[in-house]
Design a protein around this nucleic acid. Sequence first.
RNA 1: GGAGAGGUGGGUGAGUGGCUGAAACCAGCAGUUUGCUAAACUGUCGUACAUGUCAAAGUGUACCGGGGGUUCGAAUCCCCCCCUCUCCGCCA
Length: 424
Amino acid sequence: MLQVSVLREQRERIVNGLAKRGLKDAAELVDSAIALDQSRKDTQKQADDLKAKSNAEAKRIGELMKAGKADEAATLRAAIAGEKEQLKTLEQELSKLEESLKVQLYKIPNVPAERVPAGAGADDNVTVHEHGAIPQLGADALPHWELIKKYDIIDFDLGIKITGAGFPVYKGKGAKLQRALINFFLDEAEKAGYREMLPPIVVNEASGYGTGQLPDKEGQMYFIQEDGLYLIPTAEVPITNLYRDVIFTEDQLPVKNTGYTPCFRREAGSWGAHVRGLNRLHQFDKVEIVQVCKPEDSYRVLDEMCTHVQGLLEKLELPYRKLLLCGGDMGFNAAVTYDMEVFSAAQQRWLEVSSVSNFETYQANRLKLRYKNKEGKTQLLHTLNGSALALPRIVAGILENNQTPDGINIPKVLVPFCGFDKIS
RNA sequence: GGAGAGGUGGGUGAGUGGCUGAAACCAGCAGUUUGCUAAACUGUCGUACAUGUCAAAGUGUACCGGGGGUUCGAAUCCCCCCCUCUCCGCCA
């Protein structure tokens, strides 16, 4: 969430920025938070003053008692009898205001960065880079959901049997391809200086709030009622929350982590013809990269992360394009997002395989993730993350784009990881 | 799951109702000393909100796992929850 102090000091910039998301009531949202904060401050001042007064009186009573002036103490005690009630009222009012302010702040999405174009949805995203030639397939080319049956490498029906729709079973070379991709991605990330982490894939409520999945998106996460835990929708959640309530020193930065986890998404109500096969799943595998850095470095880091992701796609010889998302298509928490999309030749569609975002201080504020700068001041850090990469659509791209009459060619870089160069 | 013990500042650890935002020690930081290192000595050393300021200093409030309660006053007493450790049970 945004800091109220920033709302107060940069109201114009924020309201104008939020307009790029197509938020119609941006000004009202911001002003109402500012107003609540002002009431909060006023009430806190009253409460603090009253507490200061009663602290002094309590101290005085103690001194009188010690001096043996019990009757004077009793007189004073009687004189301040009403204060407690008054204080209680003030404190209740204060916590109500704090709660309302928090709820209000939760409603305000991150402010799009300077470079983000205004826009309502996917049509307004800007293609900033394209790489690789679109493969020309014959008329008999199959979409991946046919190919996986033909070669018996991924089985949706078995998944339905043991779990449900959207939970495929990877078989034989299909399973091995998953493992190869995970290892390839992790090795590449490590070469780029990321430290590998293997976090839990269920998290508590506090972590959900830390990275901004909660409140609001609880419907997207699987929830384990009995223990109050959520299955992670992305490794971003556990890996970023590692640094909740942490104050770094400057020499510990930047933090560069990577991690492989399965990801779980309920995707309630988002099914249809365009999400057949591997295009959308309830459980999928992903390698994530996460960085925590100083504010002045975050845009250089964002470029670095994009370059890393693009390098992976180039090594896999997949044609892709890089999109700068417009305000209306960005996630709630992001200040900038670049999406990488692979062209899936049999579907004749671009598939999103990575999303690289700079959250600036939006997550750090909730996480209380800060560092002590050279002047000894504690200030919020910037967090960034990106998929590097999400597997299913990569698999879809590889299968579709590399199909030949006598099998599917495995990209050269993966062969050492797979142990085979063709699925036939 | 059952029984017991315990959760205090970066760490160790004192503190059972007022003089404790918190002793002492260690680590850290700054300085003195020093050919360098080490040692010694001196000082400093939590976070948040508010107030104040060009900035700061200063001042007020809150925080001793979390939440509630008792009291004029709570780290200290009471209740609930969470977590850690030990033993037993179960188990990859």
